[in-house]
Design a protein around this nucleic acid. Structure first.
Length: 155
DNA sequence: GCCAACGTTGGC
DNA sequence: GCCAACGTTGGC
């Protein structure tokens, strides 16, 4: 059982969009490190912090879980998609994705509030220059985030 | 829109 | 293998 933070632009897929579906395919990841996390380390049932990025209020917007193992991202084969990759092939797909099932919407736990919590200072998503759309979350960090969502003071 | 930081590409 | 140029991310 592992924990992850996954960024989504709410203009594309928000937590509300995700909750409206039984699960959503996490298409469009075009970064090798993020792909490798999905392909090599994610397991169905892993916990996911659903993060809204590139928007007015960036931060954690909900809780989710990994709902499948990794499989090829079909958008890489679609010339009409902005995620089309001409260098990929059906025989050896370059990009993978998992399905993610949203569990519940939370209050918006803002990036500023995350940064203000000393116990979360090592969180990968908070590191300077971090742009990875998928990052592993430590169990202590996961518990701390849940505590913040419940309104408890950080220690 | 700006820009810092990072990732990828491609010539050599 | 180096590294400059370019493209992308994402907060502000």
């Amino acid at each position: 059982m592992a924990y992850w933070l996954m960024k989504s632009e709410p203009d594309e897929v928000s937590i509300d969009d995700a909750l409206a579906a039984s699960s959503i395919p996490w298409f469009g990841v075009r970064n090798y490190q993020a792909r490798n996390f999905m392909r090599d380390r994610m397991q169905p049932g892993d916990g996911v912090l659903f993060y809204h990025s590139s928007c007015d209020q960036p931060g954690i917007a909900g809780l989710a879980e990994v709902a499948s193992s990794a499989y090829p991202d079909h958008t890489q084969f679609d010339p009409a998609s902005k995620y089309f990759d001409p260098k990929s092939s059906a025989e050896s797909p370059r990009w993978m994705m998992v399905d993610v099932r949203a569990l519940r919407k939370t209050r918006l736990l803002s990036l500023a509030e995350l940064r203000a919590c000393p116990a979360l200072s090592d969180m990968l998503v908070l590191q300077k220059g971090s742009r990875l759309s998928i990052t592993p979350v430590g169990v202590a960090e996961w518990r701390q985030v849940l505590a913040l969502l419940e309104g408890k003071k950080s220690p």
